[in-house]
């Protein structure tokens, strides 16, 4: 059996900004008050009457070479070799927040009650049972596609093979594994978000 490489596509043409994913994630993972593992950013641009709005769901990009993993002093942050999911071993995390200042996507938070850093796990507990992550499951328009990028017959591999996709901040050079469709250039980079 070859190794898996999980990835996600978010088709922004379908996202209506309902925050269903945000709520499903909080409920599924018991995310503490004030923190989010996925959320929907809303960007406006233009001057009336020539305006537009775009919804951009955010979550951990489960990068190919994650900055959080390189800086973690105890190796608590790690990338699973069998499927590429980036996880945090809570027993080893000391809460130094080095990963938080190093992640260009700002997807990590300190769980104050546990004293450890936490983030999206791609619902590893569901994925291991062969079920898609909660955010994918709940999306009312099917904007999120999850699956194995290494399997050419998976929905995500077929979708990426037939659609132009973009990544967030590709210039950071970390190889993010979340892909977007119709991502506006103005909302893609650090500068765009200023």
């Amino acid at each position: 059996m070859s190794t898996k490489r999980y990835g996600m596509v978010i088709d922004l043409r379908r996202c209506v900004g309902c925050e269903g994913c945000t709520v499903a994630c909080k409920s599924e993972n018991g995310v503490p008050l004030g923190h989010f593992r996925t959320w929907v950013q809303k960007h406006e641009k233009g001057v009336f009457p020539n305006v537009s709005m775009q919804f951009v769901p955010k979550l951990c990009n489960h990068c190919e070479d994650p900055a959080c993993v390189s800086v973690c002093p105890t190796g608590a942050s790690f990338k699973r070799s069998e499927d590429g999911i980036v996880l945090i071993n809570q027993d080893d995390c000391i809460g130094c927040k080095y990963c938080m200042v190093s992640c260009p996507y700002g997807v990590r938070y300190l769980d104050e009650s546990k004293g450890v850093v936490d983030k999206c796990t791609w619902c590893v507990h569901r994925v291991e049972q062969g079920v898609v992550p909660s955010c994918v499951n709940t999306c009312i328009t099917g904007a999120r596609i999850f699956g194995d990028l290494n399997d050419p017959h998976s929905d995500i591999a077929k979708f990426i093979a037939t659609h132009p996709v973009q990544q967030l901040k590709p210039e950071a050079g970390l190889g993010p594994n979340v892909y977007y469709v119709a991502l506006d250039k103005d909302f893609n980079t650090t500068l765009g978000n200023r």
Partner: peptide, 13 residues
């Protein structure tokens, strides 16, 4: 640190 009592892990891991 989020978990000050776990600082010793810096030397084990």
């Amino acid at each position: 640190l989020g978990s000050p009592m776990k600082f010793y892990l810096l030397f084990l891991k």
